[in-house]
């Protein structure tokens, strides 16, 4: 990781932050529509669907801000949470694809005419996980310099 140019890390941070800050807007504006999108994954018990729909967009907002502008420790935590969220999102989208459910992923839009999920969503999430991990490793190295993590 120490060989990664700072400009590359900055681009990764900007990319991850922009995606997550952009993704949270529609969900915060219309939590009822986002709750329907959450329900369509049929992963959560019904009792938790609304709570997740209310809180998840704000996690996207705070982690996006942390990755963009926070000190290194908070930035590392934000990047780790983003990578974890992306992993969960990817599994959830994969489940719907396997089940043949023609639903939008609810990632950026809660509109009924949003594009239906497909394999492209998985590729995009894979790339975002890679960027989030690069951001995490750089932030950890800066936050805890005594024992820096090695390059993957």
């Amino acid at each position: 990781m120490s060989r990664v140019r700072p400009a590359s890390v900055w681009l990764a941070r900007l990319g991850v932050a922009a995606i997550f800050l952009g993704a949270c807007v529609a969900k915060i504006r219309d939590p009822a529509a986002f709750a329907l999108a959450v329900n369509r994954y049929r992963i959560l018990p019904g009792e938790f669907v609304n709570l997740v729909a209310l809180v998840l967009p704000w996690i996207e907002l705070t982690t996006g801000l942390a990755v963009l502008a926070a000190p290194a420790r908070l930035r590392a935590a934000g990047a780790a949470l983003i990578a974890a969220m992306l992993a969960v999102f990817t599994i959830a989208i994969s489940l719907n694809l396997v089940r043949g459910i023609e639903a939008s992923c609810g990632c950026f839009s809660t509109r009924a005419d949003a594009a239906v999920s497909d394999g492209w969503n998985l590729v995009r999430n894979g790339a975002l996980i890679w960027l989030a991990l690069a951001t995490y490793l750089d932030a950890v190295r800066r936050a805890f310099p005594r024992r820096a993590p090695e390059a993957p």
């Binding site: 705070t62 908070l74 949470l81």
Partner: peptide, 30 residues
């Protein structure tokens, strides 16, 4: 490798920062 290279205290501080982000998010959302 990066995560395992963290000392216990550093890992706890990192987990604390993550918990703080989650707590603030939950408070804002609710």
């Amino acid at each position: 490798g990066g995560a395992s290279a963290l000392r216990r205290g550093d890992a706890l501080r990192l987990a604390g920062a993550a918990a703080a982000l989650l707590a603030v998010s939950a408070a804002l959302g609710l």
